[in-house]
């Protein structure tokens, strides 16, 4: 059959699955880091999320009468499940991952028409559903120094309560809630959950995700606009709120960059090409919005980390940002081609 498409043409081998596999490859160092610091629970969550996601994707494709092999073959659901699995605490019971993954794949993706049509990042939808639905289970992070026996990890996954000595509040949570009038440096030295510049363990996991993100940037799979917007806005807010480390301070830029899910969010989640803005500067604005929201919720809200909320809010604003930040059509004046003109 004769198919006509208009110029310009760029040919690239592989298509979506190639991009997705590069993203998966870039995630590997971060996953290994998380495995090193937080134990085998990470792998269990990842495997469980991938399993449920593949099943849910196949079911949804079947119900919608679309070819299952093509839908599974593009690997997009695999990335969604991996990102979601990385955000769940290693000792969350099985039903947390189940709810989160089903929400992500069905509510976040297929209700909107599947790959390429979802306005929100599916993984973050799943995470937020789990966070609001299971607030206690979602705090069961492993202590970075605890060597938890495999049997206990499995018991936690099947629903048993893990003894307290193996779980710990994250650095951001401790920093937010338990400061008790101490100077920042003094407080950080007194608690073993802080590392050199961020949260203990988490700082290296973040650094590895940063490395993975830079790999994607080098490969041309993502652009720098979104991550720079998020990290820049978060760092700028932290600088404005920085008071030299008093007992009332809100934490340095390094603490905000290298704790929680900052790097994962900035390089892997915000850069999802479907749910973020379609234009380069729109992506920058989306990133900056996510960064500001993240900082505000981290400092004044109830949630210790807020990358998910920031990213979702920027997804939510992306269509409007696209509406007002249209690139100039070559050869026309500003605002040409807007719907109302």
């Amino acid at each position: 059959m004769l198919q006509k498409t208009s110029a310009p043409h760029v040919s690239a081998p592989g298509g979506i699955s190639r991009v997705m596999l590069w993203v998966a490859a870039a995630l590997v160092p971060g996953v290994l880091g998380q495995l090193w610091w937080f134990g085998p629970g990470v792998l269990i969550q990842l495997a469980w999320c991938v399993l449920i996601a593949l099943a849910a994707e196949a079911l949804a494709l079947r119900l919608r009468g679309q070819p299952v092999e093509v839908g599974l073959g593009d690997c997009s659901v695999l990335i969604c499940a991996l990102l979601l699995g990385l955000t769940l605490p290693g000792h969350a019971p099985w039903y947390v991952g189940l709810t989160a993954t089903l929400s992500a794949v069905l509510l976040g993706k297929h209700v909107y028409g599947g790959l390429g049509h979802n306005p929100f990042n599916p993984a973050m939808i799943g995470y937020v559903v789990a966070l609001i639905g299971f607030p206690i289970e979602m705090t069961r992070w492993t202590h970075p120094d605890a060597a938890v026996p495999l049997a206990e990890v499995w018991a936690a996954f099947s629903g048993a309560l893990l003894p307290d000595q193996w779980t710990a509040a994250t650095a951001l949570e401790v920093f937010k809630l338990e400061r008790g009038g101490m100077y920042e440096a003094e407080f950080k030295a007194s608690r073993d959950i802080f590392g050199l510049f961020g949260g203990r363990g988490v700082e290296w996991v973040n650094a590895l995700f940063l490395a993975g993100g830079l790999l994607l940037l080098l490969r041309g799979i993502i652009t720098w606009h979104g991550p720079l917007g998020l990290l820049g806005a978060l760092g700028l807010c932290a600088l404005i709120g920085w008071d030299g480390g008093s007992s009332e301070g809100h934490g340095s830029a390094l603490l905000h960059w290298f704790s929680g899910a900052t790097m994962l969010g900035a390089w892997f989640i915000l850069t999802d090409p479907v749910s973020t803005s379609a234009t380069p500067w729109g992506r920058f604005v989306c990133g900056a919005l996510a960064g500001v929201v993240t900082y505000c919720i981290r400092v004044w809200g109830t949630y210790p980390d807020a990358i998910a909320f920031g990213v979702l809010l920027s997804n939510f604003a992306a269509p409007l940002i696209d509406y007002y930040l249209r690139p100039r059509v070559y050869g026309h004046g500003r605002g040409a081609g807007r719907a109302d003109e």
Binding site: P119, F120, I125, I297, G301, T302
Partner: peptide, 21 residues
């Protein structure tokens, strides 16, 4: 239906602001 689902997902996002004031 999709409008209501989207509104629900937006409400989940706005739950992040809980407790700020």
């Amino acid at each position: 239906p999709l409008g209501l689902i989207s509104a629900g997902l937006m409400a989940l996002t706005f739950a992040g602001f809980a407790g700020m004031v």
